[in-house]
Amino acid sequence: MTDEFSSVWSYRLKWLYLLLLVATLMVPVFYNLYISFNKFGFGAYNYEFTLQWYSVVFQDQLLLSAFGWTMLLALCTVMTAVPLGLVAAKFFKTTRFKVWFVALLLLPLFVPADIVAASLLVFFKNLSFSLSWLADMTGLSWLGGWFDLGFMTALIGLIIYTIPYIFIVILITMGRYHPQQTEAARSCGATAWQAFRDVEFPQIRAGIFSAAAFTIILTFNEYTRTSMLKGGFDTFTSVLISQMLNTGMSEQSYAMGGIVSLVAILTIGGIIAFTMLRVQSLERTQRLKVNADMSG
């Protein structure tokens, strides 16, 4: 709310505060990017723009393989967790026990990542052991191996991690959706699925795509759970962090950090730009029609 009687300096100070806050949050990211484009690397007196460190990253087979695994994990997480989060959000809108529902669904967010990861690790180890024993006892060999540490366990860990975020993002978009529209569609002869596909989905699409984008970013950035549950393969972040721990920050590390940051910034920036352009386009169309009416 704007207080029209407040001083103009108060208004300017608020903007100054906001810009300083954003700058404080973003300076490390941009500093990392700045270094990643310097031919002479971190701490050098001279600066010469280069893409060579990025080139090194994209020529490194280990990193490319890790990047591939990370993308695959991200895609599988999106394909699984987004529908699950959507169903949870839809159920939340209709349940009478909203407080309990939210509390239970968001609870995993409040448990430290290493605790969740360690718990899942022990759980999968025991489950894997039990299933292997059962496979040996019954001769049903297909029972074993499902929960050996690997892609499947890392995926489950990421699904558990991302669902609460997806739920919140979709729920925010759903807040503007009126359920009468679903009933109106049913009244027109639509099945529940047709009503969702034709009426609800187009209106919450932005939330679902935002949740998907956010899930990709979360998957890229996640280290603790993925490292403990991934088994034998590497992800982009796990390579980056192990390089930092083992050999310290190299120019290549800054470039890898830059890639992760750019993926996040471009995804979120793209969504914001698309949304703003869409709103402007709708407003322009509306104004044109109103003008046409008034002149006609």
């Binding site: 009126h178 009468q180 529209q181 009933e183 109106a184 569609a185 049913r186 009244s187 027109c188 002869g189 639509a190 099945t191 034709d198 009426v199 187009p202 209106q203």
Partner: peptide, 19 residues
């Protein structure tokens, strides 16, 4: 279910499909 009944409904408000 409503989609299989020979009825159609007019709601108080917000029931047009805005898109």
């Amino acid at each position: 279910p409503p989609n299989l009944r020979p009825t159609s409904m007019v709601f108080q408000s917000y029931a047009l499909f805005p898109h």
